[in-house]
């Protein structure tokens, strides 16, 4: 059984259908990069997996638990940590408090233990010096790295990353990607929606290409950038267009 099973989901906003009878499985391994033009339901897919959006039909099972059952949401969200394009570092808490809040409140982790863990992850994202900082003292890139650390605090089986570098300048994007690369090297399972081709090339193990609410291509990375690109005109156009 795959860790995340997306079964025939349909999601529409009013008249606009974003995902049509959409099915896909994700195992708990490697980095899956989800590519595709804007508005093709990439983000919506991640948000549905995390139960932030309700699907119109179909079902998603995370570790065998259905997102349609409200009681499962908490467990599902702990299984899948999520980071957004505009992640919020809670403004009333400093970095350390941001990190330890959810483990302490949800997992009932003792404070000392939570702090040790937070220091470990802060080091992992290279921000051990920012423990006491408030959100407005951090750059965009630093905020995203903190958000990644915060998501990791809940011991998720997978990270859902929704265009987390889209709002950052190139330098900060690089910082965040370095963190992701090192996590990937540690074997953290990730589902990323991104426009950073270099990231897809370097880190991804599997590429999912969406267009018009359905899967155009689902292939291992090498195959995608090699054979498929040459054969599939749509994908070639997209990659050429974004400068690959």
């Amino acid at each position: 059984m795959a860790m995340i099973e997306v079964k025939n989901i349909t999601k529409s906003y009013g008249d606009h259908t974003v995902l049509k009878d959409f099915s896909v499985d994700f195992d708990q391994s490697g980095v899956t990069v989800i590519l595709g033009p804007s508005g093709t339901g990439k983000s919506t897919l991640l948000r549905c997996i995390n139960g932030l959006e309700k699907t119109n039909s179909g079902d998603i099972l995370v570790d065998g638990l259905s997102v349609n059952d409200k009681k499962n949401l908490k467990q599902i969200r702990m299984t899948c940590g999520m980071v957004f394009q505009h992640t919020v570092i809670f403004p009333h808490l400093n970095v350390m408090e941001n990190l330890i809040m959810s483990p302490m409140k949800i997992l009932k982790t003792p404070k000392g233990e939570a702090i040790d863990k937070a220091r470990y992850y802060l080091k992992k994202v290279g921000l051990e010096s920012k423990e006491k900082s408030m959100h407005n003292e951090l750059s965009g890139g630093e905020q995203q790295r903190i958000a990644i650390a915060r998501a990791l605090m809940m011991n998720p089986k997978a990270l859902l990353l929704d265009e987390i570098t889209s709002a950052l300048d190139p330098e900060m994007t690089r910082e965040v990607q370095n963190v992701l690369e090192s996590l990937a090297a540690d074997g953290v399972c990730m589902l990323c929606v991104t426009h950073e081709m270099s990231f897809a090339r370097d880190v991804a193990s599997r590429i999912l290409f969406l267009d018009g609410g359905s899967i155009v291509c689902d292939a291992p990375k090498d195959e995608f950038f090699g054979k498929i690109r040459q054969e599939n005109d749509r994908i070639n156009k997209f990659l050429s267009f974004i400068g690959e």
């Binding site: 969200r77 992640t87 009333h92 809040m101 409140k105």
Partner: peptide, 25 residues
């Protein structure tokens, strides 16, 4: 809305979100 989403994505319940995020802010 992004605050609520972030809190939800961390696994906080509605009550916890209100208690630890919404009200303090």
């Amino acid at each position: 809305k992004s605050y609520y989403e972030c809190a939800a994505a961390l696994g906080l319940s509605t009550f916890q979100t209100v208690r630890h995020v919404v009200l303090p802010i």
